[in-house]
Amino acid sequence: MEPLERYRPIVDDFEAFLAACRRPLGTAVRVNTIKTSVERATATLEEDGVEFDQADWNPRVLRLETDSPGATWASFHGFTHGQEEVSAVPPVVLDPQPGERVWDACAAPGGKATQIAALMDDEGTVVANDSNLGRISALRFNAERLGATNLAVTNADARNYSLSPFSFDEFDRALVDAPCSCEGTIRKNPDALENWSEDHIASVSGIQKGILRRAVQATTAGGTVVYSTCTFAPEENEAVVQHVLEEEDCRVLEFDLGLEHAPGLTEWDGQEFDESLERAARIYPHHNDTGGFFVAKLEVTA
């Protein structure tokens, strides 16, 4: 927990934050509406004898009273997909519509990409990309298991992504759920902070800036780009968005989120950020008893 001390000045009720980070995370699944309805998925879980609670902010997110959510009929049929509650936030903020062209820049293992496909009623095109070939097989497996037929998988570096394989040259929306230092996954992976260093944060922050810039470039004027990470480090969150605000044509949008959260920061470690970064959301583990997350919503302006 040592590395998290640096967030004492920015986190409300820091002791509650630390206590939540020490508690293991419960099990959550998302209902896959490509294959079934929320009613049928929950009826199947009841037959499975698995107790669950529906999340207030999203009826498709269920908290399960079981350690093996994969050993259910609901999972076998692809009615449910194991996905952390906060991990279901970015696709909802992205708000993709049926028929659109949507890019998921860092898509493996595919929980969010298939959620995007479901929000589009499996109509339109989801280009699910990942730079790591080893993780592509998990992405493919999940897309097929969940029945997402509008999803195409590519394996490329998102920072200089080319749309040349496709018959269109820009996206309506893009999600950058960036590779990050994963501090916010500490409840799921107790060793998440083991290799923590400021150098690592600095290097991953450079990659994040490159991917988010490319996403803004590849999205049509008026289109939406959502940036998210599962980390607390402002260097990987507000500073990345700040960089892209300076380099590309875009602005930060407000959005509604039915989960408790803190606003984005306008200052960190001597660096000031644009005031609009307050519109971003910092979700801390003690807020809603989840993992930690950061989400910002951008509009491409030219």
Binding site: I136, R140, A143, N150, L151, A152, T154, P165, F166, S167
Partner: peptide
């Protein structure tokens, strides 16, 4: 493979829709 999205033919990518 069955696919519901847009793509030209031929196309060299990792996957489209499902087998």
């Amino acid at each position: 493979w069955i696919y519901g999205g847009e793509a030209p033919t031929p196309v060299e990518i990792e996957a489209m829709g499902m087998t």
